[in-house]
Amino acid sequence: MLREYLPVLLLLGFAAVNAVVILGLGELVTRTHPTEIKQQPYESGMAPLGDARDRFSVKFYLVAMLFIVFDIETVFMIPWGVHYQQLSCAVPLVDGACPAGQLSFFGLGEMLVFALILLVGYIFVWKKGGLSWD
């Protein structure tokens, strides 16, 4: 039953082994001659100023958090999309089609409510300035 997933693991292992082999080959073939100047982080030829692990714009955190919220909404929509034809039919589908006169608004109504809640959150974020960069 889960047999279909095994080739994925096989490919994962193969890709991982290949990645290690390629990097290992690079290490084996070449020899490093580190000097202090060569090891400096590149800053367009100037001596680096301070450390790179400095504070950066909080906007990036905000984008990450908003992503989590909206991505989860997207994931919730996937099962709904898959079952939409059944959800908008009052009786079980016959040969992949709804019998005449049995259509229902259940599926569409569900998504309208969901989208409305999502929209309220979206407008809130928009008005708070969470989506504007300057």
């Binding site: 982080p41 590149y42 800053e43 790179a52 400095d54 950066f56 990036f60 992503f67 909206f70 991505d71």
Partner: peptide, 27 residues
């Protein structure tokens, strides 16, 4: 991990961009 300002900014931009467009991609 590079300890380079260009790298850090590049990776921040790239990750913010990728996650932002992933929502549109998924939807």
């Amino acid at each position: 991990s590079s300890n380079n300002k260009y790298s850090l900014l590049g990776s921040l931009r790239s990750s913010a961009q990728m996650v932002s467009y992933e929502i549109a991609l998924g939807m």
